[in-house]
Amino acid sequence: MGEEVDVGCARPTGGPVGETGAASDEETKNESKERTEMIKIGKKVPDFVAPAYHQGKFVSVKLSEYLGKWVLLCFYPGDFTFV
């Protein structure tokens, strides 16, 4: 589980880490977009870090911290949606 983080007024964000973000600063945005690694079945998933709410605390979660465990990663359209 990730470390607890201090939360200011800014909305914290995360994103892909490691190989996926390997494009250097000199490259244009378009080029780095093309280089972004996509998921592929049977292959290693791209790592990421993301802010999270967990049992009363704000924490930072890195996917690779869960190596050694089975992970179920679920996306959904939004909080307070109905389905």
């Binding site: 998921i39 292959k43 290693k44 690779s64 050694g68 992970v71």
Partner: peptide, 29 residues
């Protein structure tokens, strides 16, 4: 940003679709 990499981000609606990924202890999808 993560949703784009996982192919679940809906650009038009600006939200993520109902994607569900099973990842094993080696990090394999």
């Amino acid at each position: 940003k993560v949703g784009i990499v996982y192919g679940v981000y809906d650009d038009d609606a600006g939200v993520e679709t109902r994607g569900r990924f099973i990842i094993d202890p080696e990090g394999i999808l």
